Amino acid sequence: MTIRLYLDEDSMDKALVQALRARGVDVLTALETGMVEREDQDHLDFATTQGRVVYSFNVGDFYRLHSIYLAEGKSHTGIVLARQQHYSVGEQMRRLLRLIASTRAGEMTNRVEFLSTWG
Rank of each mutant, 00 (worst) to 15 (best):
M1A: 15
I3C: 10
L7H: 02
L7G: 03
L7N: 02
D8Y: 01
E9Y: 00
D10A: 10
D10E: 15
M12V: 02
M12C: 12
K14P: 15
K14T: 09
A15F: 04
A15H: 13
L16E: 13
V17E: 10
A19I: 07
L20R: 09
L20S: 07
A22S: 07
A22D: 13
G24V: 15
G24I: 15
G24R: 14
V25P: 03
V25D: 09
V25M: 10
D26R: 13
D26M: 14
V27G: 04
V27N: 01
L28M: 15
T29V: 03
A30C: 11
L31H: 12
E32F: 11
E32Q: 14
E32K: 11
T33Y: 00
G34E: 10
M35A: 04
M35N: 02
M35E: 04
R38K: 14
R38Y: 00
E39F: 08
E39Y: 00
D40S: 13
D40V: 07
Q41R: 15
D42P: 04
D42Q: 05
H43V: 02
L44S: 00
L44N: 02
L44C: 05
F46K: 07
F46L: 11
A47G: 05
A47M: 09
T48L: 09
T49P: 04
T49V: 10
Q50Y: 00
G51R: 06
G51H: 12
R52I: 04
R52P: 11
V53K: 03
V53Y: 06
Y55I: 04
Y55W: 06
Y55R: 04
Y55E: 01
S56T: 15
N58C: 09
N58Y: 11
V59W: 12
D61I: 01
D61S: 09
F62H: 10
Y63T: 10
Y63F: 12
R64N: 12
S67M: 13
S67L: 15
I68M: 02
I68E: 02
I68A: 01
Y69C: 08
L70I: 12
L70A: 08
E72H: 04
E72G: 00
G73F: 06
G73P: 10
K74E: 10
K74N: 08
S75C: 08
S75M: 06
S75D: 05
S75P: 02
H76P: 08
H76F: 14
H76Y: 13
T77L: 02
G78A: 01
I79D: 01
V80N: 01
V80E: 01
V80D: 07
L81N: 04
A82G: 08
A82M: 00
R83T: 13
R83H: 12
H86I: 14
H86C: 14
Y87E: 08
Y87D: 09
V89W: 04
G90L: 08
E91Y: 07
Q92V: 10
M93Q: 14
R95F: 08
L96N: 06
L97C: 05
L97V: 10
L97G: 02
L97M: 11
R98F: 00
L99N: 00
I100S: 06
T103G: 05
G106Y: 11
E107K: 06
M108Q: 06
T109D: 03
N110T: 08
N110K: 01
N110F: 08
R111T: 15
R111D: 03
V112D: 04
V112W: 05
V112Q: 02
E113L: 04
F114S: 01
F114N: 01
S116Q: 13
T117G: 10
T117I: 11
T117W: 05
T117A: 13
W118G: 03
W118N: 02
G119S: 06
G119C: 12
